[in-house]
Every structure is written in C-alpha cells, then in structure tokens.
Amino acid sequence: IRCIGVSNRDFVEGMSGGTWVDVVLEHGGCVTVMAQDKPTVDIELVTTTVSNMAEVRSYCYEASISDMASDSRCPTQGEAYLDKQSDTQYVCKRTLVDRGWGNGCGLFGKGSLVTCAKFTCSKKMTGKSIQPENLEYRIMLSVHGSQHSGMIVNDTGYETDENRAKVEVTPNSPRAEATLGGFGSLGLDCEPRTGLDFSDLYYLTMNNKHWLVHKEWFHDIPLPWHAGADTGTPHWNNKEALVEFKDAHAKRQTVVVLGSQEGAVHTALAGALEAEMDGAKGKLFSGHLKCRLKMDKLRLKGVSYSLCTAAFTFTKVPAETLHGTVTVEVQYAGTDGPCKIPVQMAVDMQTLTPVGRLITANPVITESTENSKMMLELDPPFGDSYIVIGVGDKKITHHWHRSGSTIGKAFEATVRGAKRMAVLGDTAWDFGSVGGVFNSLGKGIHQIFGAAFKSLFGGMSWFSQILIGTLLVWLGLNTKNGSISLTCLALGGVMIFLSTAVSA
C-alpha cells in the first residue's frame, strides 16, 4: 500500500470489461488503480535517471590570480610587451599612462603600459546536455494484498515479495511487465516523455548541487567559461569578468580578483528545477510519464477462499488518510488461513446495510499462523458509518465519521480527471477507425466523469442509474429551450454510458 502517505494521489477506475487503462505517473504523486474483478494496485514513479550526459560548457565562479607582471614604455618608444601576453592562462590589459620627467621619461606624453596576471579557477559549475534516449524511469508497484503497516513504502525485498514489484522503462524499451506472483502480471506500455523539453534544458552542477536550467539563461551567464570537458589546462574565455584592473600608474597597475560568485548564482537559480546525482547518473524529480496498463493477466487472489471465522482485533486505531479513506490494521487469532476477511461498512448496526467501498479488493489472510496481521483500506461514505470486521458474535466494529460532501468530492474528481486527460493529450485517442474513435470517446468520458459518477451514484443499482439517464434524455427531447435540451441530452447520455461502463 504505497499511496496512503502521498498527498498527491489519483484514483483511476477501469471500465467494466476493459483490459487496459491509461494513467499519468508523476514525481511526488501516486496512482491507485481499481477495476472490477482485479486486485487494487498502487503505482508510483520513484526516480527518473539520466546517463551519458555530455559537458557543454563550464563557468568559473571563484578564481585566484598570481605571478603579476607589468612592462611600460616612454612616449615614442613603441608598445610595451610581455611574453605572458601569448599565454592563455594569463589575463592581460594594455593601456596608456601619462609619462614625463617625473617618472623617468625625457618627453612628456602618453606611454604604453601592459599588465598580466595568471588566472586560476578555484571553483566552477558545469552544464551538461541531456539526450531523451538516455532517460530511465523506475516504477514501483504494490498490490493491496496481505501486507501490514511495516511494509508500507518499503522498497527492500521486492524481489521475493509477490505484493510488490519494480520495473524500469526507457525510450528504447518502453514496454515492461511486472510479475506479482499469485496476482498474475501487469503489463506497462509507457510513452517516455517527461513533459520537459530537454532540447531547451541543461543539467547544471555547482558545488555538489544540481538544477535543470534553460539553455539561453545558461549561455548568457557573465562569467569566465570554457567549452567542452575539462582537459586539465582549460582555456578560459572572458577571464576579465572576475578580474579587475585598478587605476594605472606610470610603471605598474594593481590587479585584484573578485570574490566568489556562488551567492549571486544561487539567487539567479531561484525557482529552477532541482535535481540530484546518483553516482555518474543524474536524478530528476520533475515531469511525468504516461503509461497504458494492460490488466488482462491480472487476477484476484483468494476468490475461492472461505470466510475467516475466528476473532479479529484492531492492532491500531483506524486512521484517516490524506485522501479521506480509512486504513485499518487487524490481527487474526485463527489458524484456518488462508481465508477471506469479512469486512464491510454499514450505516447502522441493526440492518448492516453496506455503504462505501473497499479500496483493498478481496482482502485475505494468507498465513495459517496465529496472530497474522493484515492492513486494508476503505472508502467510507460522508457522515457517520460503522466499520464491521468478522462474522457472528466475534465481529468487531468501529464508529467512523467522514466530513465533507459527495458533491465536493465529485467536483474534485472531475477536475482531476480533466487534468489527466489534458496530460494524456492525443495519445488517449485513436482515429484509425470508426470503432477506435468511439472507443476513445468512451475512454475520455470515463477518465473525466467516472470518479464523479461513482461518488454521486455508486450506491444505486445499474438499472436505477439507466432509468435516471433515460429520464434526462426524455426531458431533453421534450424541452423547447435549446440549451436546457442539449444539457439534459448530454447528461442523460453520459449517465447511461457510465452506468453500463463503470464497474460497481
């Protein structure tokens, strides 16, 4: 259960009878995928790494000078000259100064003066180019299975845990398959586009800190620079940016070097996208990844198990997540596992009318040892309800109150669905055939309105939902006002479609 501690969480529900669903994975976010007769899966884009970055340009932001020398000439005696002028490691300046009897010249006039100092770069920052084909995306998957609280967001041991898996995709191999043991396998067909235009970005490294910066900004930095990788004795261009020549006297000129420019660069980098280094690879934390999940090989585990009949206890007080759902960790005293956990939410304890829904599909106890633990997640209705676990006299209950409203949740879900469709863009549509167009249209309606429909009408039977949709269509056909007619027709059509397409 990876997503319960992530604030940016998206719930995606598969269409009834569908074998695939489109998701948008982004750094700092987590996606929970639910479908009829399929286990619930949490998917998170953990890291995006980039390798084989080529150094484009380096800037010196802290330097020192040494070996200063000057040469001067009297008027009419030609130009002052130093051998160091031809050495690229030196920074030199030529000027004219007033000369006369007082400073060793027989004539009054302008004399030539040249001053040089050896330039040494102490600290530099480097910009590297990123090729999209060198990106690698690491995705962690977790099935809502027989897990306890100690396994949440624990990325170790996934090789031997059938509840978890790690997959890596690249532009050259965008397809992967996550093996989930008894739950089958989940196929991923990803489109490795981060949403960032790397043709316009460089990877900047300064003092063990890293950013993504725009090329134009990078090339306009007014500091000494050299092109390409460091060859040991780089040729620094624009050395004068960190060196200041003071007022010249008759035979000498003082040279000083400016202080470190790291603070000024940090100020200019305010708002830039931060990154990290992992050995020789860069780690990015921006952008998104679009994936199509193929769920035809994914299956529920323990459908044929019998119900657990022994007593359950709450190991922890049920807690609310950031998303309005409830996490419950229970301990089973029996030894008759594997068995299914009898769990439901009810409005009252007399009729036990089921409300809400299970995020953890078909929760089971897989071990036959005593005191096995299991964590599950529920989506309670707004208002008061009861969490009921167990059967008969051994069942345990917990009162729950959820604040908020169904309308607010439906609106929030619609906005999130619209954002998801905007990110998917043209990849969500198939114009290759008439059937493809209608299929894409259905998927689009489901992406945007599916979660809201589930919130508003999830407790009704599909037949009642179709009746309401048919009534809206009838009202649309018999209303003389054009805008009201079109609105009723659209709402009725969407409702009829979703009542037959969205899983219960």
Rank of each mutant, 00 (worst) to 15 (best):
L269A: 09
M68H: 01
L358G: 01
L322T: 01
A333D: 00
L486D: 06
R357W: 12
G324F: 10
R420Q: 09
A63K: 10
V24N: 07
N134R: 04
G187N: 14
C3V: 02
R193C: 03
K215R: 14
S146Q: 15
G356M: 08
Y61H: 11
T315Q: 02
N103H: 06
F463S: 05
M140K: 02
G182K: 05
E377G: 13
G228T: 04
D197P: 01
L196G: 00
H235L: 12
F119A: 07
Q89R: 10
D220M: 11
P342Y: 06
A63G: 13
D83T: 13
Q85N: 10
W101V: 03
D296F: 09
L141T: 02
I152F: 12
S433H: 04
I221A: 02
V388K: 01
H219I: 12
F183W: 10
F245C: 11
G492D: 11
A54V: 11
V437S: 00
T156M: 12
G228S: 03
A422S: 01
W225T: 03
A272H: 11
L486G: 11
I341W: 13
M15G: 01
G100D: 11
R420H: 12
A227V: 10
F497K: 11
R164L: 08
K316R: 14
D37P: 00
D83N: 11
L273V: 15
F314E: 03
F411I: 12
K316H: 15
V355F: 00
K124V: 11
W236T: 02
T88Q: 11
E26M: 10
F11R: 01
T32C: 03
W217N: 10
G184K: 08
V24L: 08
M349N: 00
F108D: 05
I152H: 12
G100K: 06
K297S: 02
A178E: 03
G100Q: 08
V56R: 01
K290F: 05
F463L: 15
N207Q: 02
H27Y: 08
R402A: 11
T156D: 11
L188V: 14
S503V: 03
V91E: 04
P222V: 11
N172W: 11
A346M: 15
A346H: 12
T414L: 02
S372R: 00
T194Y: 14
S122M: 08
N478A: 02
R175E: 11
G482T: 04
V143P: 01
H27A: 14
D83S: 11
K281G: 02
K124A: 13
M53E: 03
C92Q: 11
T479I: 07
A176P: 01
L300A: 03
I130L: 10
S385E: 11
D430C: 09
C190G: 10
T120E: 12
S368P: 14
S142W: 07
V56T: 03
L472I: 15
V243H: 03
N439V: 11
K294C: 07
E320S: 12
N134Y: 11
T414N: 08
E136G: 11
T120Y: 06
L475P: 03
G383E: 11
P192T: 14
T19E: 07
C74N: 09
D42L: 02
G145K: 08
T156Q: 11
L113C: 02
E367R: 00
E13W: 10
N163M: 10
D67A: 14
G444A: 15
K394A: 10
S86V: 02
S499V: 03
V46M: 10
G17F: 05
R416K: 15
T427L: 02
K290R: 15
G111C: 07
L204T: 05
V143E: 08
A501Q: 09
W236H: 05
A333E: 14
V317G: 00
P174E: 10
V12T: 01
Y59R: 02
V167M: 09
P318Q: 00
V364L: 06
M495S: 10
L204Y: 10
C3R: 05
H144W: 12
G187S: 01
K394W: 02
K38L: 04
N208Y: 00
M345C: 10
A418W: 11
P174W: 12
P354Y: 06
A270P: 12
I341P: 07
Y203M: 11
